[in-house]
Amino acid sequence: MSQHEAHGSVKAYVIGFLLSIVLTIIPLLLVLNHMLSKGWLVFAIMLMAVLQFIIQLVFFMHIREGEGPKYNVMALILGIVIVFTIVAGSMWIMSFNG
């Protein structure tokens, strides 16, 4: 096994875990205590979901590691573009229904 290949550390996993817990508890408190107006609330909890997604990619799935061209990152970016298009596109087109 080549020594330049990193696999994270206990520290990285613990940091990722703690940040994920915080990013789960904050939106939960915001929603249960009705702390923001509806629009801002949706924005805030979606933002925290995306942040937690990024944290898991970095601390758990080691997206930044590995050598050579990052084909996995390229595939992921393409996937995110498709996911966004499907979800946002469906919401937009169906908003004309009501």
């Binding site: 996937g79 996911v83 499907i86 919401m91």
Partner: peptide, 18 residues
């Protein structure tokens, strides 16, 4: 396997959109 996960994301995207 990463590429499979990306296609699985797209599967979930269609279900989320629905």
């Amino acid at each position: 396997f990463w590429i499979f996960l990306v296609t699985d994301c797209i599967l979930f995207a269609t279900l989320f959109a629905t």
